[in-house]
Amino acid sequence: MAQTIIDAHNVSKTFNPKTVPVHAVQNVHVHIEEGEFVALVGPSGSGKSTLLNMMGGLDEPTAGSVIIDGVEITELSENKLIDFRLHNIGFVFQSFNLIPVLTAKENVGFVLQLQHMPKAEREKRVLTLLEEVGLEDKINSKPGELSGGQQQRVAVARALASKPKIILADEPTANLDSKSAANLLDIMAKLNKEEKITFLFSTHDQRVIKKARRVITLVDGKVASDVQQIPS
């Protein structure tokens, strides 16, 4: 039986609680098991990015708790939380968010450097990751010299660098053309299958939703449906 990797328990998030309260997420219970490939869907303003951020420890819930791999991250201090993210969670953002002054190789290696991995080992892993995402010929290119799809693949390689158990991706295909999006999804699906990495996407993109094995739909900050499906 698969182990629960993310347990969001009765999680709520209210913005501007003292002025004009906005209840972005309300009493949400979500359990995600190791190796799942989950799409978090819903209309704009439904709270999917907020929920994703709370599950990744980027946002603090107003109420409830988030437990990742047995660690209640809502109880961690700021620095411990940053360290926890560094070792356990990979992030892929909508607008790639690479470090513009570093090459593809350096961007991927950055996380490993923060983990103090020895140089030789680090370089080997970076090359392996960039090969996995099909960018072995772009290792010395800076983000500005890469296409959107290539940048997002570097971001995926960076997210994978620390061998995280979970990758959280916020609208990862939103800025990509169809071909790049399909290519990226294939890479992610392969990693999910072969390395048992848990993927959680917030998305509107039907291409992503079709690839997911589980689709959680949020409406007005609440879970409207949570269904398993056979990916196409």
């Binding site: 620095n79 940053i82 560094l86 992030f91 968010n97 470090i99 950055f110």
Partner: peptide, 15 residues
């Protein structure tokens, strides 16, 4: 700001 936010997200601490 966005880049700094990303750096914090991926594990660069405030120090």
């Amino acid at each position: 700001i966005r880049e700094l936010g990303m750096l914090m997200a991926i594990g660069l601490n405030k120090r």
